[in-house]
């Protein structure tokens, strides 16, 4: 009951309060405002958003291009690195071969030199031994001769000496 009275009163009041001209004016103003806003604000914002999107797309494209370039460079560098590794392996192998060859040559040379030294030492030793033997023989001979000379000088009597002289004279007379 109360609600019906209230609703009936409210409708009567709205009807009193709202004027149709004003409402129309408000509607026109709203339309104008909407169109104005659409023209002045929505379009530029839309354009700006589109520009932003284009810019982003451009950046994305550049980024994609750069990525592709980086990928290509990476692949290229990978190939270069692989080649460099191969070359390094070849150089290393050659260096090892060369070093081994050099080492073999040095060892062979050292062996040759050692052999020569040993042969020379043996020759010198043999010569030294011969010289020493010869010296010893000479010394023995000298000592023997000195001893013989002393013994003969002591033991040869006048008679022996006379006999020796006579034998020599007899032999020379026959010649």
């Amino acid at each position: 009951m109360f609600m019906n009275f209230y609703e009936a009163g409210l409708a009567a009041n709205i009807g009193d309060l709202v004027e149709w001209e004003s409402l129309v004016c408000h509607l026109i103003a709203l339309i104008i405002l909407t169109v104005g806003l659409y023209l002045l604000l929505f379009k530029p914002v839309k354009r700006m958003i589109k520009e932003r999107q284009d810019k982003i797309k451009k950046i994305e494209k550049e980024n994609s291009d750069l990525n592709a370039e980086v990928r290509q460079m990476k692949e290229s560098s990978s190939v270069l690195l692989s080649d460099a590794k191969k070359q390094a392996a070849v150089i290393h192998e050659n260096a090892v071969k060369s070093a081994n060859q050099k080492a073999d040559e040095i060892v062979a040379d050292a062996r040759r030199q050692a052999k020569n030294i040993v042969e020379r030492a043996e020759t010198e030793l043999e010569e030294e031994r011969r010289n020493l033997q010869s010296d010893i023989e000479q010394q023995i001979t000298d000592v023997s001769m000195a001893v013989a000379r002393k013994i003969l000088a002591r033991d040869i009597s006048a008679e022996d000496d006379k006999k020796l002289i006579e034998e020599s004279l007899a032999q020379w007379s026959k010649e």
Partner: peptide
């Protein structure tokens, strides 16, 4: 000359 020990040299 005693150095020749014995014998003769001519």
């Amino acid at each position: 000359d005693g150095k020749i020990i014995g014998g003769i040299i001519v």
